[in-house]
């Protein structure tokens, strides 16, 4: 591998966390493979973002075109195809975000590259990269090789690659003219649709803070909401909470409610009845906080705290806000 490319992801003029995580993964890969690292930034009016990336990446390559903003997978694909045409061997990494899910598979075909999605770790053997990903309801770790591929695209599991800012690099920002020319696309961005607050989609949330009967008869729902907000997740619940009209039905996780496949599931005051736990699919990091040390939820959780929620939750919220800076 001669080169490692990191595709920056941004929305509404803000770099997304996936960018930094991809950069962290790219750095490590570049080091292990002895390859050059380049960050690719595609968009329009991206100077501020380019500057931010230039502090962390050795090279930043920018393509500006109004058709690249907001994110347009087909425009991205065409652009990348053009600018990577003569490169290689290379590996391109990017977040496994919902937006980039529209890009990576098609891109791999367009670039004639091998693809591994949702990788959580890489290793290098005989100078070749291998990727760890999960299969079978995310329950089995799988190591995949890319055979003799000279071009590789990999998407990265959110949260799997921790980024530490160095701030040391002062990269040159290289601007490349947009190769899009007069291309029109068969897909058109219409707009963002904000789900109403009541429309929170528990089913597709990656981070879920879920509350159960153990939160008491007159719970402080705001306390839980602010924790969910601090964690960047959504608030869900078990059936008793819906019964008490504390949250609407579509927040209810369970075999009879919504099935969820989060990455992280924080169960607060949830006893762990099968009807509830049955609705949690995949293998999320399951953390339980409950007063009752014998609550069955502790049997399925990886981490647990036996304590009063009213003490733990505010402390946890504060600490998380602190960690986020």
């Amino acid at each position: 591998m001669k080169e490692i490319f990191v595709l920056a992801e941004h929305r509404k003029q803000q770099l997304r966390d996936t960018t930094w995580e991809a950069l962290a993964a790219g750095r490590k890969l570049a080091e292990d493979l002895g390859a050059e690292l380049t960050c690719l930034l595609l968009g329009s009016n991206v100077d501020a973002m380019a500057d931010a990336l230039a502090k962390e990446a050795p090279r930043v390559l920018v393509v500006e075109d109004p058709r690249l903003e907001p994110f347009h997978p087909d425009a991205c694909m065409q652009t990348l195809k053009a600018i990577l045409a003569d490169r290689g061997p290379f590996m391109l990494v990017m977040g496994n975000s919902n937006a980039l899910l529209d890009l990576a598979p098609g891109l791999s075909v367009t670039l004639d590259a091998a693809l591994a999605t949702d990788c959580f770790k890489f290793e290098v053997r005989d100078g070749k990269p291998l990727a760890w990903r999960q299969m079978y309801s995310y329950k089995v770790n799988t190591l995949v090789s890319f055979k003799d591929a000279e071009r590789i695209v990999a998407t990265l599991r959110g949260g799997a690659f921790a980024f530490t800012p160095s701030g040391a690099a002062v990269a040159t920002v290289e601007k490349v003219a947009s190769p899009l020319g007069g291309t029109t696309f068969r897909r058109r961005f219409v707009g963002y649709v904000e789900a109403e607050k009541g429309d929170v989609d528990v089913a597709s949330a990656d981070i879920i803070v879920s509350v159960g009967r153990g939160i008491g008869d007159e719970p402080d729902m705001e306390m839980f909401e602010s924790l969910a907000e601090a964690m960047g997740g959504v608030l869900a619940c078990s059936r008793p909470i819906v019964d008490k009209n504390l949250l609407p039905k579509y927040h209810q996780v369970g075999t009879s409610g919504v099935e969820v496949k989060p990455k992280v599931y924080l169960a607060l005051g949830i006893s762990g009845a099968f009807q509830h736990v049955g609705g949690i699919k995949g293998s999320p990091l399951l953390v339980a906080v409950n007063k009752d040390p014998r609550a069955p939820i502790f049997r399925v959780a990886q981490y647990g705290i036996v304590a009063d929620l009213n003490q733990v939750v505010p402390a946890l919220t504060d600490k998380i806000k602190q960690l986020k800076g």
Binding site: R239, D243, K249, T255, S256, G257, Q275
Partner: peptide, 11 residues
């Protein structure tokens, strides 16, 4: 046992 009624006010 699995059936959930959205109408009931009490179990």
């Amino acid at each position: 046992l699995w059936y959930e009624s959205e109408e009931e006010k009490e179990r």
